[in-house]
Design a protein around this nucleic acid. Sequence first.
DNA 1: AAGGACTTGTGCCTTCGTGCACAAAGTTCA
DNA 2: TGAACTTTGTGCACGAAGGCACAAGTCCTT
Lengths: 238, 238
Amino acid sequence: MSLSRQLSPSRTRDDGRGIPDATVARLPVYHRVLRTLADEGVHTISSDHLAQSCGVSPAKLRKDLSHLGSYGTRGVGYDVALLSYHISRELGLSQPWGVVIVGVGNLGHALVSYRGFASRGFEIVGLLDSHPDVVGKRVAATGVDLIVQPMAQLEMLVRESGASIGVIATPAEAAQKVCDRLVDAGVRSILNFAPAVLVVSDEVEIRKVDLAVELQILAFHEQRRVDDSSQLAQVMNA
Amino acid sequence: MSLSRQLSPSRTRDDGRGIPDATVARLPVYHRVLRTLADEGVHTISSDHLAQSCGVSPAKLRKDLSHLGSYGTRGVGYDVALLSYHISRELGLSQPWGVVIVGVGNLGHALVSYRGFASRGFEIVGLLDSHPDVVGKRVAATGVDLIVQPMAQLEMLVRESGASIGVIATPAEAAQKVCDRLVDAGVRSILNFAPAVLVVSDEVEIRKVDLAVELQILAFHEQRRVDDSSQLAQVMNA
DNA sequence: AAGGACTTGTGCCTTCGTGCACAAAGTTCA
DNA sequence: TGAACTTTGTGCACGAAGGCACAAGTCCTT
């Protein structure tokens, strides 16, 4: 896509540097499980065993890991610490990322108090909200406490903190405007919790988490299930 | 997979009844956008326009909708109300689904106060927590208030309410045990927010939402971006 | 030192998802 | 009525992802 990727086919691992998206999406899981294993004192693990702990097939796990390089030992398995290090390095977890959260309602609070951030190199560097009742409040994050800033501070906050990731936890109506301001301020990675489709330029990456969507997917399969069993009952009564 | 699907190739739409997973995952978005359009008084919309509002390509949208049947009119477009109805019907949104939420911390609170549930046929029928400070508290949901029940009530609550979907918003350590109890009580669809890999039997469907995973995926691409630009700078200095 | 047991890394094949392009069908206007 | 224009539905081709199976490499035992 970008200019520089075309003119530099020189990266060491994974010839030409293309890790499939599906693999990238699983690496964080492998990483988390490996750290848990390390805490438990496990030093070496086979792909079969690790795959089971991660809920994937062994073949898929091995193929995923092969994209990072050859960090396993045939006949033995993977060194937990080594593999964990290389995954975190590949994911960019070895350097800290500044995160700005916009919208400090219930969800925003939940995000701030989520313990999985700091340990993975994410640092919340700013909280923003538009509601006067919330602005100025002190919120306990992991490590330091933060004070909710008014929306007018957005651009300055992003610029001064050098934040690179923006999280949108506002109502749907406000999401697009917040998104535009984040992008204008220089943010190129956005995690959107608002149930709205955001339009951005190609250079910005957006990931979306929608609670209602997940529930509706579950409902679809649940309905299929009850349809099936009622049909089955009909057949058996016939 | 299941017995009944094999013996009933008689469903009307989508010969043999197989809607691709990728399509199912997008239907909720189409549905939400269509309802917004209906509220704005739009009666008819073309696939091009709807696709743009949903952030997908027109071809993909049309193919997705074709799995439900032919509900568009050539030369005109889709009737917003009709299409919205058929999608909601396919997703099982026309009948109410009972939802039990386990873990009423910050995230649990955010879920309860989320307004997107009731309007899509999801009704929160129970809140559970293990912490004595939380049990017994009244939490304002959409419509009715709910009182947080102790974990011991789980089985009874699921059975009496007939809840079909369970949401796990507990710490990771408790997730597997909660999951097992939900399944034992008869729940077959689970939405898991805890950062843990849950093992269940094949007949149970689990969907997972992991905030840290999403951030790490963003970090990966963000890192690739800065790698590229620093390499580009090197090339330009040479 | 050699053979057997074990485990990784990968080539091949199948399946799934996406995009293009066009025929079929409907509408509007003269 | 008929011709020009619009839009859906879909056949086809291509690329991404997943799974199988095995060669290559490592350790252990005798």
